[in-house]
C-alpha cells in the first residue's frame, strides 16, 4: 500500500540522495529534511538497508556460483577415498536368481567380515579417525605465540622440543604437546600429556580443550593398544550427547572398536 511519503515523491528524492544523484540545493534540502524529520530518516535508513541487502545478494550469488564449481572437485576427492562396490549380475529363472542373490550376499558378507577383521588394526582405526587439529587462534584470546605458530605450521618436532624447555605448562601447552606427540607417532607420550591436561582441568574452574582431550586421548589409547581405556573414554563421550565429539565417538565405538576388542 502506498503512503504519504511515496505519494509526495519524498522517497524518490531519498533514492536520488542515496544514489548520489542530487547536487547543490536539492542535496542540501534533502539532507536538512533528514536531520529534522525522524520519520524521513527512518525511511532513508530503510533504503540504505535495502541497498546493502541487494549488495549482499550479489555477493551470495557470486560465492554460490564459485562454490558450485569448486564443490564437485571436493566431492570427487572425498568419493575417491571411499570404497565403492559395484555388483553386476545376470540370472535365469526367478528361483535361480533368489538363490544366487542369497549366495552372493553370503559371499559378500563373509568376505566383508573377513576383510574388516583382517584390516582393522589399532593403527588403521587410529588413522581413519584422526583429524589434524588447527588451533582457532583469535585476537583477544592472546596473540599467536611461537608454540601455536609452530603447531599450526605442522612443525610438531619443534613444538615438542620447545615445550620441553618450558618450566610450567598451561592447559593449551599440554594439549598442543599431546597432539604433537600423536602427529609424530608417539602415543605413550601423547597419553601422558593429555592425561596431564585433564588433571589440570579437574583442578581448575576453567576447563580448556576438555572435549578435544577426551577424543584425542581415546585415539591415543587406540593407537597404543589400550582398547579398554579407549572404550572407557569413548563411553564417557557417548554419555554426553552435547559432547563435541559425540557423533565420532559413537561411530568408532559401534564399529571398529568392537572388532579390536575381538582381536585382543
Amino acid at each position: 500500500m502506498q503512503d504519504n511519503f511515496t505519494q509526495d515523491s519524498t522517497i524518490e528524492q531519498l533514492i536520488k540522495l542515496l544514489d548520489g544523484e542530487l547536487t547543490g540545493n536539492e542535496k542540501a534540502a534533502a539532507e536538512l529534511l533528514l536531520q529534522n524529520n525522524d520519520a524521513v530518516k527512518d525511511r532513508y535508513e530503510n533504503l540504505v538497508a535495502a541497498r546493502n541487502a541487494v549488495r549482499l545478494k550479489g555477493i551470495q550469488q557470486r560465492v554460490q556460483s564459485l562454490h558450485q564449481q569448486f564443490y564437485p572437485l571436493i566431492s570427487t576427492q572425498q568419493a575417491s577415498t571411499e570404497t565403492a562396490k559395484v555388483i553386476k549380475a545376470s540370472f535365469g529363472s526367478k528361483l535361480k536368481m533368489v538363490v544366487s542373490i542369497a549366495a552372493m550376499f553370503i559371499v559378500i558378507i563373509s568376505g566383508f567380515v573377513l576383510y574388516e577383521f583382517s584390516t582393522t588394526t589399532n593403527d588403521a582405526v587410529y588413522a581413519d579417525n584422526f583429524m589434524s587439529y588447527q588451533l582457532p587462534v583469535l585476537r583477544g584470546e592472546g596473540s599467536l605465540d611461537n608454540l601455536d605458530s609452530l603447531f599450526n605450521a605442522g612443525n610438531f618436532t619443534a613444538v615438542i622440543r620447545l615445550t620441553e624447555t618450558k618450566q610450567a605448562l598451561s592447559q593449551k601447552n599440554y594439549f598442543i604437546l599431546g597432539l604433537s606427540y600423536l602427529q609424530t607417532g608417539n602415543a605413550t607420550e601423547a597419553i601422558n600429556a593429555l592425561q596431564s591436561l585433564q588433571k589440570v582441568n579437574n583442578g581448575s574452574e576453567s576447563k580448556q580443550f576438555a572435549d578435544e582431550s577426551d577424543y584425542y586421548l581415546a585415539l591415543a589409547y587406540i593407537k597404543a593398544g589400550n582398547i579398554d581405556q579407549a572404550q572407557a573414554m569413548l563411553d564417557k563421550i557417548i554419555a554426553n550427547p552435547k559432547h563435541m565429539y559425540y557423533a565420532k565417538a559413537k561411530e568408532i565405538s559401534n564399529g571398529s572398536l568392537t572388532i579390536l576388542k575381538w582381536k585382543q
Binding site: 522517497i11 533514492i15 535495502a50
Partner: peptide, 15 residues
C-alpha cells in the same frame, strides 16, 4: 523502473 523497484522494496520493509 529503478525508483519503482526501490520504492516497492522500501515499502515492504516499512510495512
Amino acid at each position: 523502473k529503478k525508483y519503482k523497484c526501490m520504492k516497492s522494496l522500501e515499502q515492504m520493509i516499512n510495512d
